[in-house]
Computed example of a mutant assay.
Amino acid sequence: MTTDSRVLGDIDQREVTDLYARCAYAYDEARPEAFAALYTEDGAFEVAGAEPVRGAAALADLVRGAAERSPGTRHLVSNVLVRGTGDGASGTAYVVALRVAPPAVRLITIGRYDDEFARTTDGWRIRRRRFTPFVRPGAVQATDCSGG
């Protein structure tokens, strides 16, 4: 995230912050086109150490594949910070991804998003999202959530 600390106006701040929730819901509800539409035309999703997923078709395919591999995924995004950066914005947030498959809840990953946003004719969009995991995959065991 850039060190520019220019504060966005209230409406821009809300719209950029709202992208975090809209992106999580589109991914978790397996709406690939809605997810891809939240990115700029050349937008990219990057995971530390992996090739970036770039462009609408690839971003939509990412969601399709995830929905097949891990149904019941829920992203919990918190501690969102957004700042203006010249003509755009940057943001950072913590993210926890869970797989809810009663009676178990499994931690998929926990980490941080670092984002670059651009204002487009369709509103604010994600130009680049980089996810940095804090734990290795599978580091946490499933937890029984049946109450018993």
Rank of each mutant, 00 (worst) to 15 (best):
L81G: 11
F35V: 03
V16Y: 11
T40Y: 05
V47M: 07
G91P: 13
G65P: 09
Y27C: 10
P52W: 00
T73E: 03
E33R: 15
V95P: 11
D42P: 00
R83Q: 12
A93Y: 14
R54I: 12
A37Y: 04
T17S: 15
V95M: 15
Y25H: 06
Q13T: 09
L19P: 13
T92Q: 15
G88V: 05
V82E: 07
D42S: 09
E68D: 14
A26R: 11
T85M: 09
G49S: 02
L19T: 08
E15Y: 05
A21E: 06
Y27D: 01
D87A: 15
Y25S: 04
L62I: 01
E46N: 01
Q13C: 04
E41N: 04
L81W: 06
L59W: 02
E33L: 13
G65W: 12
L19V: 11
R22D: 04
T40D: 11
R64N: 11
V47T: 08
S70H: 10
S78N: 11
D42F: 00
G84R: 06
V63I: 11
A57C: 01
G43K: 01
D18K: 08
C23Y: 10
G49I: 03
A56P: 07
P52E: 01
V82R: 06
V47F: 04
A58Q: 03
V53R: 02
Y39G: 02
N79L: 10
R54S: 12
R83P: 07
G65K: 10
N79E: 13
G91F: 08
E51S: 06
A30T: 07
E29D: 15
P52H: 00
A21Y: 08
V16E: 08
P52T: 01
Y39L: 03
F45N: 02
G84V: 12
P52Y: 01
G65E: 09
V16S: 13
V63F: 04
F45L: 08
V82W: 08
P71F: 07
P71S: 04
C23I: 03
V82M: 10
N79Y: 14
V95D: 11
V63W: 01
R64Q: 13
A60K: 03
Y20V: 08
P32A: 04
L76Y: 14
R54E: 11
A26S: 15
A26I: 10
T40S: 14
T40Q: 06
A57W: 02
Y27S: 10
G86W: 13
G84S: 13
A37R: 12
A58Y: 01
D18Q: 13
R74P: 02
E68L: 14
Y25N: 02
S90G: 15
D28C: 10
V77F: 08
G43N: 01
E15A: 12
D12R: 07
A50E: 10
E68I: 12
A48R: 10
D42N: 12
A66Q: 15
A24D: 10
H75R: 05
G91H: 11
A60E: 03
A37D: 14
A57E: 07
G65I: 09
A67K: 05
S78H: 07
Y39D: 03
R54W: 02
N79G: 14
G88C: 10
D61Y: 00
A34Y: 00
A21F: 09
F45T: 01
V16L: 11
T73N: 11
A57T: 09
V95I: 15
E29H: 09
V47D: 00
D42A: 09
